[in-house]
């Protein structure tokens, strides 16, 4: 038997030593070892001895005192408290997860609110600019039905008249495009004052829910402001000039209580 064969035999000794004594492969190996030389036989016995020593060393572990009692108590604890009892880190994980979700929801809500606020600002800005430019009317009429009949085909949402102070007088309308979206512009008058009402579709501006009634003013010194609101599923922006005479506080109040 050459050196390479002996090395192979050594390898097989290492592998087959863990097989049961009555295993045919092991028995054949033992037979082969006995036929080679005494040195391999001694190696085999040392291997068996070393394995037994490893087994003894590995088993040299004493469970901590009270472990059995703690394990026996599991059914009672499991029934009362569930699996989370045993891993305080699980509670912390759950708490952390709840916090993360809460922060994420808060963040999401915050982002949505910011988006809504930006959209409303855009509506206010474009309607105020439009009001300042005094768009030329396509229809000159104080008859709302006539205005609807002439304009409804040009807009993709139903036209409807909001609740306005009865003292306001309708003078005409025009379908216009502001910020890329179609709006119905109607002009209203009260004495010498001019008001602009814009009906639009909130979804066009990314506003998917009824708009809370609010008044927007670009700056404290601005001479007009915009009231934005939703009424009967329609969205409106009313531009009001701030030069209403001091003698008409009631009128102003009525307008803003729309």
């Amino acid at each position: 038997m050459n050196a390479e064969q002996i090395e192979q035999l050594r390898r097989r000794m290492g592998e087959l030593a863990t097989l049961p004594h009555d295993d045919p492969q092991r028995q054949a190996l033992v037979q082969q070892i006995s036929e080679v030389n005494g040195a391999l036989e001694r190696e085999w016995l040392e291997l068996i001895h070393a394995d037994e020593q490893l087994r003894i060393d590995l088993a040299r572990v004493t469970p901590p005192p009270g472990l059995e009692e703690r394990l026996l108590a599991i059914p009672g604890q499991a029934g009362l408290r569930g699996r989370w009892t045993f891993r305080p880190s699980h509670w912390l994980s759950a708490l952390a997860a709840v916090l993360v979700i809460a922060v994420a929801l808060w963040g999401l809500t915050s982002v949505k609110e910011q988006r809504v606020a930006r959209a409303i600002d855009l509506v206010a800005t474009v309607t105020m600019a439009s009001h300042a430019s005094e768009p030329e009317l396509d229809i000159t009429s104080s008859d709302w039905k006539a205005i609807v009949a002439a304009s409804q085909q040009s807009v993709h949402y139903p036209l409807d008249l909001p609740t306005l102070d009865p003292s306001l007088r309708l003078t005409g309308a025009k379908v216009i495009e502001l910020a890329g979206n179609t709006m119905l512009y109607t002009r209203w008058e009260h004495g010498s004052e001019r008001y602009s009402l814009y009906q639009f579709c909130g979804k066009d501006f990314g506003l998917k829910r009824p708009l809370p009634r609010q008044e927007l003013k670009p700056s404290p010194k601005a001479d007009c402001s915009v009231i934005v609101w939703t009424e009967n599923h329609c969205d409106y922006a009313l531009v009001i000039e701030e030069s209403l005479p001091a003698s008409e506080p009631a009128q102003r109040s009525a307008l803003r209580s729309i």
């Binding site: 599991i74 499991a78 045993f86």
Partner: peptide, 18 residues
């Protein structure tokens, strides 16, 4: 680690009970 070993043993028997 002995602490980890006890924790694992408890988890094993808890899972076994469940």
């Amino acid at each position: 680690d002995s602490n980890c070993a006890e924790e694992l043993a408890q988890e094993v028997f808890f899972e076994a009970w469940r």
